[in-house]
Simulated scan of single mutants.
Amino acid sequence: MRRLAAAGLAGLLMTSLTGCSDLVERGFLPKGVTSTSEEFTSFWNQTWLWALGVGVLVWALTFWCVVRYRRRKTDTGLPPQMQYNVPIEILYTVVPVLMVAVLFGKTVEMDNTLTDTSKKPDVTINVVGKQWSWDFNYVEAGVYDSGVQAHLTGKKGVEETLPTLYLPVNKRTEFVLTARDVIHSFWVPQFLQKLDMMPGRVNKFQVVPTEVGTFTGKCAELCGAYHSEMLFQVKVVPQAEYDKHVASLKQRGQTGFLSNSLNRSELVPGEQQFLPPGVDSSSIVEEGKK
Rank of each mutant, 00 (worst) to 15 (best):
T62I: 00
C65N: 14
R68G: 03
T153Y: 05
P30R: 02
K244E: 15
A141H: 06
V100M: 01
K73S: 15
G213V: 01
T161V: 00
A150P: 15
W134H: 00
N45I: 04
Q190P: 07
I125Q: 03
A51W: 00
Q83I: 04
R26P: 13
S282N: 13
Q46Y: 06
L231K: 12
V234G: 06
K106D: 04
I125D: 04
N45Y: 00
T255Y: 00
G129T: 03
E160A: 11
M110S: 06
G154D: 09
T15F: 08
K194P: 01
D181I: 03
A247R: 10
L192T: 01
E160K: 12
V95N: 05
R71Q: 11
D181A: 14
C219E: 10
T41H: 02
N263S: 14
R70I: 02
W64H: 13
L52T: 05
I183N: 13
F28N: 08
A60W: 02
G270P: 11
P80C: 10
S146I: 06
Q239F: 06
L195P: 11
S133F: 07
K155Q: 10
D22M: 15
D145S: 15
Y138K: 06
Q193W: 08
R180H: 07
V207L: 09
I183T: 14
T74H: 10
K290E: 12
G256T: 04
K290C: 07
F63E: 14
V123Y: 01
Y92E: 06
E211R: 13
T124V: 11
E271P: 09
A240M: 00
M99T: 04
T107C: 02
F232I: 06
K120Q: 15
S185V: 01
D280H: 08
R252M: 13
L49R: 01
C20H: 13
L13G: 04
K106W: 01
W132N: 14
E109C: 04
R68A: 14
K130T: 11
V33K: 03
V208S: 06
V236R: 05
Y84N: 12
L167M: 14
G154A: 07
E159I: 02
M14L: 15
H184V: 02
L49C: 09
G154F: 04
G27T: 00
W132A: 10
W59P: 00
S35M: 02
T216C: 08
N263G: 09
A247Q: 15
V56D: 02
E109A: 14
F205R: 08
N112K: 15
L9R: 06
F40V: 04
S146W: 03
M230I: 00
D181H: 12
G8K: 08
V246F: 05
S265C: 15
L258A: 00
W44N: 15
E25A: 15
L12K: 07
Q272V: 09
F63G: 07
Q251S: 14
G157Q: 05
V100A: 03
Y226G: 00
F232P: 11
L103S: 12
V148E: 11
A10C: 14
R180I: 02
L98G: 05
G224I: 01
F28M: 11
S118Y: 01
P277C: 08
Q46E: 13
P269W: 01
P209I: 03
P189W: 04
E211Y: 04
L177F: 06
Q149M: 13
K171H: 13
V212K: 10
E160G: 00
L167Q: 10
M99Y: 03
V54S: 03
D75C: 10
A141M: 06
P80M: 07
S228G: 09
P199Q: 07
Y242H: 10
W50S: 01
L4M: 11
